[in-house]
Write a protein that binds this DNA or RNA. Sequence first.
DNA 1: GTCGATAATAGGAACGATTCTCATTTTCAT
DNA 2: ATGAAAATGAGAATCGTTCCTATTATCGAC
Lengths: 146, 146
Amino acid sequence: MTNTKLERQIAARLADGGVRLTTARAAVIHSLAAAEGPRSAAELYDDLSGSVPLSSLYRSLAVLEAAGILDPHHGTRGITRYELAEWLSGHHHHLVCVACGAVDDVRLSDAIEAALEHLVGEVTQSAAFAAEGHSLEIEGRCRRCA
Amino acid sequence: MTNTKLERQIAARLADGGVRLTTARAAVIHSLAAAEGPRSAAELYDDLSGSVPLSSLYRSLAVLEAAGILDPHHGTRGITRYELAEWLSGHHHHLVCVACGAVDDVRLSDAIEAALEHLVGEVTQSAAFAAEGHSLEIEGRCRRCA
DNA sequence: GTCGATAATAGGAACGATTCTCATTTTCAT
DNA sequence: ATGAAAATGAGAATCGTTCCTATTATCGAC
Ligand SMILES: [Mn+2]
Ligand SMILES: [Mn+2]
Ligand SMILES: [Zn+2]
Ligand SMILES: [Zn+2]
């Protein structure tokens, strides 16, 4: 009965919403926790060797997103990838490969992140827009596609 | 025979690639040039009152993207929106409404944009990643959804 | 522990955005 | 005007995703 901090946080949040942590949902969460970037339904289906049917997988993803456990990320070719929500994984940004579409996480140093938040604040002061968050995507070529 | 600078730039680029500037393609470009943010195929179909069939519209968008005239933007619910490429419209960023999905352009001041580029440079120096561009999306609520 | 209410699952049908196919039409250079 | 190449339009096909429904698992009350 391992109980990491992450698992406890997730269990608590799900219990809060009256959502059950089933084995399929736990499997999805473990795959995503181990991943180095957001994963699509198809990729997770592979990761889980098809042990969770696609329809159930999609439902799990929707439920976990609604519960605030996962955040969706809309990438190339209309494919949605999911990752642990930032309150679980920490705030970060993405390196997106323009050649293969792979997405890797990148964490900014505190100084850089602070500077970025400052920029966002300055931008939205003028616009009639209530900012709630930001995401910086750096586009380029990954190792393999370099 | 109006010939704005934008039209001349586009005509030249298309000629370069042996791509014809047909009336349908010109109509798409005019709609996008007038828009205040990226537009989806369905939205353009509306803008053009169905005068360009959907299949042709999609083909036009693909051709214009391949020619470097348009840039795709992948948003919520697997919907791709297109806008004029930045070498035509100028570099800018986006305000994305988390409620309705609307996307508006936002241009950063030179000072802020320079600071942002500096941040991106610092980030990618460490990562094994050849950065080619960046996009900052500010998420929040638009006027209507506030 | 059993029971009933409620939540979750599996499988497939249905859906919507996008792409493909192909016969016809338009365009351009000659 | 003529022929080659490019573009079009209508619909079929594809693909990611969502919906439906009958069945099964889970939880709390007894
Ligand atoms: Mn991430
Ligand atoms: Mn834009
Ligand atoms: Zn790559
Ligand atoms: Zn809105």
